[in-house]
Design a protein around this nucleic acid. Structure first.
Lengths: 344, 344
DNA sequence: CTTTTCTACTAACACGTGTTACTAAATCGT
DNA sequence: ACGATTTAGTAACACGTGTTAGTAGAAAAG
């Protein structure tokens, strides 16, 4: 059929009313009087023609696109190996669906950050955006604070006034390290999840330090290192730790995805978990409980995080609440499995 | 600033020209004459005001939203545990970025499929869509064939005329099974990646059967079962296989994600890989090479698949090529690691 | 019977852009 | 010097919707 675009005008013509009436009926506008039979005629015509309002036209006139952006700022490779992304998307999708909102994924290359955020905002393709895993040195974030587009961070940035949703990384890491210390370990390695520019990384190291300090255990600085999100980096980090000759009986690896590689390096060195080295992870990705041995880890409520971020953003968009002091912190939980052993 | 919306009219006013001229200059329309100094004035004004054209208005008038949809049809839980999604998204993102196209993720609940696809198409929020992991019994797919929206499937559906991008699942599975047979195994279990409604699942089983038939090895039907995407289902499948009492010296698990759970079940039963049971996976997710032992698997070029799907869709949108007979099949590769052992 | 109120609608504008048809001035050819 | 062509630009329409202001007719009030 050549006449494949059905507009509200077609519906109006078929129902024998004006286009305005069609709009009023289909949007169920309150406080206006339309006779029941006219109402019925319009609904019938719309159904018969298979009328679906043009989203772009609606967006243009209402200044609402009914879409929010999930903005990824990491490299191609890091996105591809991110074991966490599916949960984020799943969480976002459920909350967004409830409000009849779509999700637009966008990828901002690090070099063009400043302009890219703004183009996205100015083009008004989305009503608001969620920034995932922000970096401390991300200058564009400062700029966004004064911009006019609602923004929620997943993961906090110190000193930023933007709303965020996060876990208490320091407390969570402290929980993990304390567990190892309670088991009698004193020589503990710490491999953080990412380079220090990503805020969660130094926070988790800080949590590790706090636990050590609180227990009066000296920290060996040479046992602290920073991985880079993926298993490969975990493998390299653990390998260089082993080659350094420093002794350790346990390791806190602040990301399960990184732990996948770290475990592999330990195995290659002939070390067994938990007999030779105890291991605690972070995140509780699906793999963790099926790992050999099942990995003791900190459960990060990824989907809930995403859902909260989405709800918060939707509130911001609707203008509910002031845009400052919107900080949501979710609870973490230590999941004890079989990768740790007490020192006798 | 209260006057935060910059339109082309503002640019026109500042440059002292008409709105038409602004449009002509900024879109670099060929075959029209504008003096260099006017051109410069417009560009200068646009930059000074930080003008970014309104995407919705552009979409409305051009009938192009510059966005494509990635439509997920699986359950909440399956999306959250899909170890494959990040690669798909990464691949889509790279190709889309090159063409300055955005990606809209949408989630269609199985009950509302028929209407949901159409609303998406009719609302014209996207220029085309990519359907991931289609089901054989998806009636809506038939309907889409006669619809007016460009659609590409990731994974084929037998009997559908829609363009698709896929690997040769039969041949790939055959490769995996043949490898096990060449190592001397004759009692081989087969755990497919998903329920039979998902096209890839029976195809991979068929490949397994072909290999067995070609080598003249009888197939034990009780050693064939279907998992459900996630590690949990792999664990259950392997467990019931072990409890059935049927003997097998090797297993072909048609999904690495499922293999994560299957391995866990084997371990619990006190069976060692590869000494007691040889294992071949499918997909080559990042975990596979760091697994213990490193998993021999079929590499599925997920990112390339996504990129091809994206390119194909963009061609379709631009009207290049007829919409039938667009079938792209990518190559798979057997990656031999350490999870298999020859039978003496 | 006239005026007011209510009912059931509709005409017209706004959103911000791309594009076609048109025009006034300048240049050119002879 | 005068029509023909080129140059440089503009006015006006279209895209499809939401919404405000307004109106004809009927009912109610005085």
């Amino acid at each position: 059929m050549h006449r494949n675009r059905v507009t509200s005008r077609d519906v109006a013509k078929m129902a024998g009313v004006s286009r305005t009436t069609v709009s009023l009926v289909l949007n169920n506008v309150q406080g206006i009087q339309i006779s029941p039979e006219t109402r019925q005629k319009v609904i019938q015509a719309a159904k018969e023609l298979g009328y679906v309002p043009d989203a772009m036209a609606q967006a243009l006139v209402s200044r609402r696109t009914k879409a929010i952006g999930l903005v990824l700022t990491r490299t191609h490779h890091h996105i591809a190996t991110d074991a966490f992304l599916p949960k984020i998307i799943s969480g976002l999708l459920t909350t967004a669906k409830q409000h009849n909102i779509r999700i637009l994924i966008d990828w901002v290359e690090t070099e063009h950050q400043e302009s890219a955020y703004f183009e996205l905002a100015r083009a008004k393709r989305i009503d608001g955006m969620i920034l995932s895993t922000p970096r401390l040195d991300d200058k564009a974030i400062r700029a966004l604070e004064s911009a006019d587009i609602p923004t929620v961070l997943m993961g906090s940035v110190v000193g930023s006034t933007l709303p965020f949703v996060d876990v208490d990384n320091v407390a969570a890491a402290e929980k993990a390290a304390s567990y190892l210390i309670e088991l009698g370990h004193r020589e503990i390695a710490c491999i953080s999840n990412a380079p220090p520019e990503y805020t969660a990384a130094p926070e988790r190291v800080q949590g590790f330090r706090n636990a050590m300090a609180r227990a009066g255990v000296p920290v060996n600085e040479r046992l602290i290192c920073y991985a880079d999100f993926d298993p490969e980096s975990g493998y390299r980090s653990m390998k260089s730790l082993l080659e350094s000759g420093e002794r350790f009986t346990a390791a806190f690896v602040a990301s399960d995805n990184v732990a996948i590689g770290a475990k592999s390096a330990l195995r290659e060195a002939g070390l067994r978990i938990p007999d030779d080295v105890s291991l605690v992870g972070f995140d509780d990705i699906p793999w963790a409980r099926y790992s050999d041995p099942p990995l003791t880890t900190i459960r990060l409520p990824a989907e809930a995080l995403a859902q909260q971020a989405c709800s918060l953003l939707l509130n911001l968009i609707q203008g509910k609440g002031n845009r400052e002091n919107h900080h949501i912190i979710l609870e973490t939980e230590l999941i004890v499995r079989k990768s740790c052993k007490a020192i006798q």
